[in-house]
Every structure is written in structure tokens, then in C-alpha cells.
Amino acid sequence: MDKEAGKKAIVEFLQKKSKSKSKFYLKDFYEVLPNEKVRDVKNLVNEMVKDETLEYWSSGSTTLIGLKGTGKQAGAEDEA
């Protein structure tokens, strides 16, 4: 897959949605890149966390992913 194009598509998707929602399940990213294998998308998303583009948000039982530093939770957690 074209990694850079994939990363760009993911960032654009998140920016477009950022008004209403800042965090998504891993599966939502599969729909951003429907032609890629899910395992490749998973690896790409995890790589983007390492790049510090994305960050995880965990409920403890499940994980959401969004653009680093966005969303209202950051404020709620005194970690902004």
C-alpha cells in the first residue's frame, strides 16, 4: 500500500469529522481505506501513533483512536 497516501486519507477523515467526533474505533479506519487489508490498516494506524499524529484513548475494555491532542476528554482529564 501507499503508506503516505493512506496516512493522508486518515488525517483528512479525522479532520473532516472533528467537529462532531474526535475518536473512532479501529474498524472505522478500515472504511477510510476500503481497498487495503484490515491488518495493514491496523498496522498503519499504530504506526501513526508512533509518528505522534494519532493517539489512543482507552476505556479500559476497548480502544478509540483520534488525532493527538484533540477532543474534549483531554480537558476532562487535566492532561491537556
Binding site: 508512533k50 482507552s58 479500559g60 480502544t63 478509540l64 476528554q73 482529564e77
Partner: peptide, 12 residues
């Protein structure tokens, strides 16, 4: 609950 904190690069 807090969801953001973690160590870098780990989701769990």
C-alpha cells in the same frame, strides 16, 4: 476514568 494516559506507542 481517564482514557488518554499510557506509555508511548502502547494502547494497553
Amino acid at each position: 476514568h481517564g482514557g488518554i494516559v499510557g506509555v508511548f506507542g502502547y494502547g494497553g
